[in-house]
Design a protein around this nucleic acid. Structure first.
Lengths: 304, 304
DNA sequence: GAAACTTACGTAAAGCGTAATGATC
DNA sequence: GATCATTACGCTTTACGTAAGTTTC
């Protein structure tokens, strides 16, 4: 088992057929086929079913795939780090962030980077701590959990959590909402709106759940959406009230949610490893990200 | 760059000389020497200084070493996972835990495992969440942080945090201590004992710091010890009061610390990934660990 | 029979070991 | 001069490409 053979394995699963993978890898198809067989023999596991003249990953293959990808990612990280030591400057920078932040903040930000800056790579990391994201190979993490110990962090923004309702809704002309209005009054369960929520790993959901727990309340039977955009789409279709931290879409009206402790919000931080050899360069990017968010946030603030 | 070359690199740093590393790797010294040079050329970085007829890692070499080890560890994890799929049973199990737990709980526990059980491997993980520990390759994590989302967890124990004083100390015959007694009264700073504390990543320290923050108190100028044992050794030498969750040593007297919220303690949990292919086998080990701790803890309870 | 994977065979490259050479204390 | 690393050279292994064979739809 070598990095090369793992690359072969991943590429083959990825491409679907050995022929296609071979082309992508710039090797011939028989050569690739042989290497895959040897890898299977070495690991002692069938990675592919060979039924029907076609290769499909076995259960073992499916479960080993992410591990193989992980090895390759780490090897890549090593190569990037080596390039940093060679050139003295960071030429690639990996950012891990929750999906919502990725779309609303990180993506617009990396669009402002120019040729002099490191090439940004990005991956999705919902509901993970700075340590987990950085441990997955990111140089810079964006998360809503406070960072500890060997990680340095800066507050990026305090993003409001919105209750989004369609134009015709009875709350459409309200300027704000109290948390208690969102959830069922134990005395009158029927008065509550149905909630449309992102998965429990999402920061807005974590914030909502925590606030409700503090208030001793809870929602019943929410609609689980795949992410904030889907939640908003469902709200736009009149299925309920979407509670998200995404920017409102589909013409939805976004209301801030007030609790006893103030507005419901998500504190976004950016964090990096202070022991990273390029930590100065990373801190510089983090600072620019913070500046970018500050500008963007001062605009979005107008909306409230 | 292949796994083989990374193994060569790590082994060479580890062994100190190419000759020694070559012997350990079962290759000849010139062959190894050549591979190292090729790796350096490929990465574009000098990994070793060649001054004085001897190889010493450069700064780049030192900083790339843990990355290389990481790649190899991941590759190892892949091999173990493959072996699981091949044999249908887990033959190796990696446990990550904080140092104190490692010594007082995990080590005695793995001593009870027999030939039918997976071979345990263990690494130290202080002040890390379940996600971080499992992300580092552990199959089973022991931590004091609550686990979330895709991780399954069980409470192992509620370990008391002790204030340890030597026999002659004015508290040596006390049965308990209030938190306020430990730290300086802002009015009379001189009345406080000097504290001997483990690093800020240690669970007992985190618990103490959190309790003090809740109480609006703080300590001043504590002695920082490398770990709980060193802290106790310093306390035994009369340097101050050690605050640790380790079992008392050196004939120290251990007092539980009472706060407004009850006894100061550390809630230990054990966690694993519910998506792990061998999660049933891991859960079984976790259950036995919990049982082991329950027995052990009922004994240590006698002491309080 | 077209498209996919496998087997067979010859070739080129890459790694390895032995032997000789160079550098440092 | 002893110890450690490098360079030189020949061999062996290993991966690769081409060509032919097999299976499936």
């Amino acid at each position: 088992m070598e990095l090369r053979t793992l690359r072969y394995f991943v590429a083959t699963v990825d491409a679907g057929t050995v022929t296609a993978a071979a082309e992508r890898l710039h090797v011939t198809q028989p050569g690739l086929s042989r290497q895959l067989r040897q890898l299977e023999q070495e690991l002692g596991v069938d990675l592919f079913h060979r039924t029907g003249g076609r290769l499909t990953p076995t259960r073992a293959g499916q479960s080993l795939l992410p591990l193989a990808q992980d090895v390759l990612e780490r090897a890549d990280a090593l190569r990037v780090a080596a390039a940093f030591h060679a050139k003295g400057r960071l030429d690639r920078l990996t950012i891990g962030a929750p999906l919502t932040t990725l779309r609303d903040v990180v993506a617009p930000f990396i669009a402002t980077l120019d040729a002099g800056d490191p090439i940004p790579a990005v991956f999705q990391a919902d509901g993970q701590t700075a340590g987990e994201i950085l441990g997955r190979g990111a140089d810079l993490a964006v998360t809503s959990f406070p960072a500890r110990a060997p990680y340095e962090s800066r507050t990026l923004a305090e993003l409001p959590v919105w209750a989004c309702v369609p134009p015709g809704h009875r709350w459409a002309h309200r300027a704000r909402l109290r948390l208690a209005e969102l959830v069922a009054d134990p005395e009158h369960p029927s008065t509550a709106e149905r909630l449309v929520l992102p998965p429990a790993t999402f920061t807005s959901r974590i914030s909502l759940d925590a606030a409700l727990q503090r208030a001793g309340r809870s929602y019943s039977d929410p609609i689980e959406a795949a992410d904030g955009t889907v939640a908003q789409a469902l709200a736009a279709a009149g299925r309920g009230v979407a509670v998200v931290s995404d920017d409102p879409q589909f013409g939805l009206h976004a209301l801030p949610i007030h609790t006893d402790d103030g507005k419901l919000s998500v504190r976004l931080i950016t964090a990096w490893d202070s022991r990273h050899p390029a930590h100065t360069a990373i801190a510089a990017v983090a600072d620019r990200l913070r500046l970018f968010v500050a500008q963007r946030y001062s605009v979005t603030n107008d909306r409230t």
